[in-house]
Nucleic acid binder design. Structure first.
Lengths: 199, 199
DNA sequence: CTCGCTTGTCTAGCACTGCTAGGATCGGGG
DNA sequence: CCCCGATCCTAGCAGTGCTAGACAAGCGAG
């Protein structure tokens, strides 16, 4: 019965559409504008349909957007790092991270402020691990101690810069210098090593 | 007319009471539990009274709690730094910062996630500047570039660690090591300078 | 001392939120 | 062809922030 398959396909489409509409609405009107009624309106179904797809309700929907965001962030970091030489990998990583946060502020907000994603657990989805992995791999050569912990600190620095900037608590004109300073700090050991080798 | 003064005094008392109750409610039930109705209930007045004190409504009330938080944070940082020797000032600062965030998670949330405080403007309240000043003064000796920008990066690192930890995205058992790594990074120039002098 | 008026406060209600129980409707299988 | 199950919608609940208008209390003037 191909009917069942079609139904399944239509259902999956609608599922994606809900997430896409939620994201779109959030990106150009803020998350406050993302209400179940408006969402239902835009997908041209009634509210209860949303709960058929996301039993967890609105929270689960922003969670889905957040998950999407993590996948994109990880991909962005990966390509930025790959495109850069080994010398400025840290710089490429940091600048790609801050660029993502600046360009998708609402998605970033979903990822870190709104969604309660299952982090640090056995069933943690792959996209959630992937971004951290990139950070760890890039920072590992510079790590004075455990690379995992060092990556956490590095991530925290970038996350802090991103959120404080978005909240308007860091003057925009200093962004470049802050980036340079952060890169200098995080990639320092590499520099030290290089300095020791060159003379 | 002592009557007017009494009125004024009672009004000021009630003002403080609103902020105190909001904070108390937030600290032990989370900000979602802080509703104008519940707030009115606890201060034993009706809802409109709240708007007499805070025309901006709920947002202004969480702003008041946030402001209080900034004052306390600045004080905590100051005393921690003063109590420490010049060698571990950075360590004292960082550990006091993270301790404050961990001990008052909801207030911290008000300060950085909920309230829209007037930062970086001419009329920025003193408590909002003070904390940053402490951070800048402590980190200045280690700053490779502009102390202001360096302090922003330092603040961002601490803020990132605090928020990621609160969101459960950093394993609690690594807190000490992360703190050590962060202090090592931020205070590094001091160490370098000292190392150069001692041998 | 009494009257009017300002000041303060409350009741009741609006428009909105997330979420759900119940009934209607549509389409495939027997 | 008819029935039955899946699918979807209408309508409603309890709660939110906020406010207009009624009401009472207390002050100053006459």
């Amino acid at each position: 019965m191909a009917v069942k398959e079609r139904r399944e396909r239509e259902r999956a489409d609608r599922h994606r559409r809900i997430v896409a509409v939620a994201r779109e609405l959030a990106e150009d009107q803020g998350w406050d504008a993302v209400t179940t009624r408006r969402l239902a309106d835009r997908i041209e179904y009634s509210q209860p349909v949303l709960y058929g797809h996301f039993p967890g309700g609105k929270d689960e929907i922003v969670g889905a957007v957040a998950l999407e965001g993590f996948a994109e962030l990880a991909a962005a970091l990966r390509t930025a790092v790959d495109a850069a030489g080994p010398d400025d990998a840290v710089g490429a990583l940091a600048s790609a991270y801050l660029a993502f946060a600046a360009e998708h502020p609402e998605v970033y907000r979903a990822m870190f402020d709104l969604a309660a994603l299952p982090f640090g657990r056995d069933d943690t989805p792959a996209p959630l691990r992937e971004g951290f992995t990139v950070v760890r791999d890039v920072l590992a050569p510079a790590a004075p101690g455990d690379p995992g912990h060092y990556a956490e600190v590095g991530w925290a620095t970038l996350h802090g810069l991103a959120t404080l900037a978005r909240a308007g608590r860091l003057p925009p004109e200093g962004a470049a210098e802050r980036l340079a300073l952060a890169v200098g700090l995080l990639g320092q050991d590499t520099a030290t090593v290089r300095d020791r080798q060159t003379p």
